[in-house]
Design a protein around this nucleic acid. Structure first.
Lengths: 146, 146
DNA sequence: TATTGTTATACTCTATAACTATA
DNA sequence: TATAGTTATAGAGTATAACAATA
């Protein structure tokens, strides 16, 4: 049984699953002092990237469902990190704005997230870490940022 | 807004999540004709690696809970792919054996899984694909197979 | 008619606590 | 007392279907 677990450890599904589990654990811990989790930081990130987005636009960028977005925005609004405002141009839409607290949570969260990710990638040097991300982006068909 | 989604696409959590989602979709489709999914193939893999394992041993290798393993073995047993046999040396334990059908499902499933994984990694050449896996193994602290 | 947000509902994966039978 | 398996239950995260308001 020389290659006992080889079948498992050569499987990309296993590697991705356990990488995600461990990374989530680390980032959740790093964000807990801010009262948010990784999913919420991701929402704040897309909302803070440019002008305010409607819920469905934000959901699209995150690759989640619009019904899932409702609860996420609910939670962030309850913490006063975002604010729903009806779009004057199309009153079916809620434009979701970051509050000052939300902008602060985004900034601090971003820093804490980066630190946690860096620790998770501790076994790799910076070139290798960048390489890992680049390979994943290429697999997913995400164009290289210029 | 040149780097519009940069904040997201540079985040390992986002990349891992979406890689796993797409890979799961592909492998699920590739295994569906065999009547199993990726998790079940993983169980068959650890059970087929050497001598029969108790449920809790198999759960440990997969990194899942023993209570989760119960339902997985239930499902596989219902499909006649595995068989629970009390361990004569310790009758609290169930040794889970692959049936002939289970061995066939493992072999065919392994082939289909590899094919699906290969398609998912289609944007990479073989060296890069191996590199991606190796980087993930190092991050997870999985020793290199010799 | 079509779309945005919402609600209700359900399904998957997971874990915790309590039970049973064995040790 | 401790452990393997089981059961009941509950919590995330997700999606589908149906509804109200608006386009």
């Amino acid at each position: 049984m020389l290659t006992s677990a080889h079948g498992l450890h050569d499987r990309l599904g296993y590697l991705l699953k356990h990488a995600q589990l461990e990374l989530t654990e680390r980032t959740t811990g790093a964000l807990a002092p801010l009262g948010i989790n990784g999913r919420e930081l991701a929402v704040l990130t897309v909302l803070g990237a440019g002008e305010a987005l409607a819920q469905q636009q934000a959901a699209g960028r995150l690759g989640i469902d619009r019904t899932t977005m409702v609860d996420l925005v609910d939670a962030l609004e309850k913490k006063d990190l975002v604010e729903r405002r009806p779009d004057p141009a199309d009153r079916r839409r809620n434009l979701v704005h970051l509050t000052p607290d939300g902008k602060a949570a985004l900034e601090h969260g971003e820093r804490n997230y980066r630190a946690a990710e860096g620790e998770f990638l501790g076994a790799l040097d910076e070139t290798e870490a960048a390489q890992l991300k680049e390979l994943l982006r290429r697999v997913l068909g995400i164009p290289v940022a210029t």
